[in-house]
């Protein structure tokens, strides 16, 4: 082997091996990058699928609400109205004071029941919420809770009211409804305040109760109700902030930017 041959072998051999390393590294990096992109794509598809699934679930829920609302209004409501009429007839035709007093009491109670049922029917009906507007729908819901005379409810409206679109208003209303229902069910508050703030850039809703509160960091607290709220907020492309202090109460703040975009497209 000549002197130059040895140097040539050294140079070519080492260069070839370095080329091999370069190829190996570049190939691995490219493969991993492609894999990462594939994973991202898969994740995005999974998210889309989950969103579609949730959307369908909420649509079914909305349909069920509508069905219950119609049933309450058209069937039970009608029946109760007939009962009320019959009671009125009994009261009118009877001459015994005891029967008249009892019929009057029953009539009043029945009237209250019909009124409460109408309220429930209205708050379940998406059409009513669309027609009445967000503030009135919330007020109607609070009125129904107030009628139980156990929880003091207040609605504060700040700024000039405007519509953010019936679909979005329905979602906001459902979030408020869910929050209030959760508070009554789990926190046993004596007062619930709802503040609806209208600003040029969007609206914010603050729901505050003085109930028992809960630990927001605990995983057990992320139940279906809270999850639904988060899903609806996501559909609104909004932001929800839950703060809770044990034995002091819970505050939920919902921010929605006023855009012309449709929900969850």
């Amino acid at each position: 082997m000549s002197k130059n041959d040895l140097m040539l072998i050294l140079f070519i051999g080492t260069s070839s091996l370095f080329l091999f390393i370069g190829f190996l590294v570049i190939f691995t990096i490219i493969h991993k990058r492609k894999r990462y992109e594939h994973l991202l794509e898969k994740q995005s598809m999974e998210n889309n699928y989950a969103n579609q699934l949730l959307l369908s679930r909420l649509e079914v829920q909305e349909q069920s609400f509508k069905y219950f609302s119609e049933e309450i209004h058209d069937n039970i409501g009608q029946l109760l109205s007939i009962v009320k009429m019959q009671l009125y007839n009994i009261k009118s035709s009877s001459k015994e004071p005891e029967v008249i007093t009892k019929a009057t009491d029953c009539n009043e109670l029945l009237g209250k029941a019909i009124n409460d049922l109408r309220n429930i029917s209205h708050t379940l009906n998406s059409g009513f919420i669309s027609n009445a507007g967000l503030a009135d729908a919330i007020e109607k819901d609070l009125e129904y809770i107030r009628s139980a005379k156990e929880v003091k409810c207040n609605l504060y409206i700040n700024g000039d009211e405007y519509s953010i679109g019936s679909e979005k208003e329905l979602l906001v209303f459902r979030i408020v409804q869910e929050t209030i229902a959760n508070a009554i069910k789990h926190a046993r508050p004596t007062a619930i305040d709802v503040a609806l703030n209208y600003a040029p850039l969007g609206i914010s809703v603050i729901i505050q109760d003085n109930g028992t509160g809960f630990d927001t960091s605990e995983k057990t607290n992320s139940g279906i109700g809270l999850n639904n709220m988060h899903v609806r907020t996501e559909m609104l492309k909004g932001k929800i902030d839950v703060t809770s202090v044990k034995d002091k109460g819970t505050t939920i703040k919902l921010d929605i930017v006023n855009t012309t975009e449709n929900v969850l497209v």
């Binding site: 040895l6 051999g13 080492t14 091996l17 370095f18 091999f20």
Partner: peptide, 20 residues
């Protein structure tokens, strides 16, 4: 890089020292 860079160098080290 360390391994490949020195593989041929150390394989022919004695020759390289003697003749180069």
């Amino acid at each position: 890089i360390i391994g490949v860079g020195g593989l041929f160098h150390w394989a022919f080290f004695d020759d390289l020292v003697k003749h180069h």
